[in-house]
Amino acid sequence: MSVDGYYARIEYNSDTDLFRGEILGLSGGADFYGANPDELRQEFKKSLDVFLEVCKEQGIEPRRQFSGKFNLRIPPELHEQLAMAAEAQGKSLNALAQETLQKSVTA
Rank of each mutant, 00 (worst) to 15 (best):
V3P: 01
V3T: 08
D4R: 14
D4F: 03
D4T: 00
D4N: 14
G5V: 01
Y6E: 03
Y7V: 13
A8H: 03
A8R: 04
R9C: 00
I10A: 02
N13T: 10
S14H: 15
S14I: 12
S14G: 14
D15H: 12
D17R: 04
D17A: 09
L18D: 03
L18T: 02
F19A: 07
F19P: 07
I23R: 05
I23E: 06
G25V: 13
G25H: 12
G25R: 06
G25Y: 14
G25F: 10
L26Y: 01
L26W: 08
S27D: 15
S27R: 08
S27H: 11
G28V: 12
G29V: 10
G29Q: 09
A30H: 03
D31F: 07
D31C: 07
Y33Q: 08
G34P: 03
G34E: 02
A35N: 03
A35H: 00
N36R: 04
P37T: 02
E39L: 04
L40A: 09
R41D: 01
E43T: 00
E43H: 07
F44P: 00
K45Y: 06
K45T: 12
K45A: 15
K46F: 08
S47N: 00
L48M: 13
L48F: 00
L48K: 02
D49M: 06
F51M: 02
F51R: 08
F51Y: 15
L52C: 05
V54T: 08
C55M: 06
K56C: 00
K56Q: 09
E57T: 12
E57I: 14
E57P: 05
Q58F: 15
G59V: 06
G59M: 09
G59H: 10
G59P: 06
E61D: 14
E61H: 14
P62E: 05
R63S: 04
R63F: 05
R64T: 00
R64A: 13
R64N: 10
Q65G: 03
Q65E: 13
Q65S: 11
Q65R: 12
F66C: 07
S67V: 03
S67P: 11
S67G: 05
G68Q: 01
G68Y: 10
K69S: 15
K69I: 08
K69A: 11
L72W: 04
L72A: 13
L72E: 05
R73C: 03
R73W: 04
R73H: 07
I74L: 13
I74V: 15
P75I: 05
P76M: 09
E77W: 05
E77G: 11
E77T: 09
E77K: 11
E77D: 10
L78F: 10
H79M: 13
H79P: 04
H79C: 08
H79W: 10
E80H: 15
E80K: 12
M84Y: 09
M84T: 11
A85K: 12
A85F: 09
E87T: 12
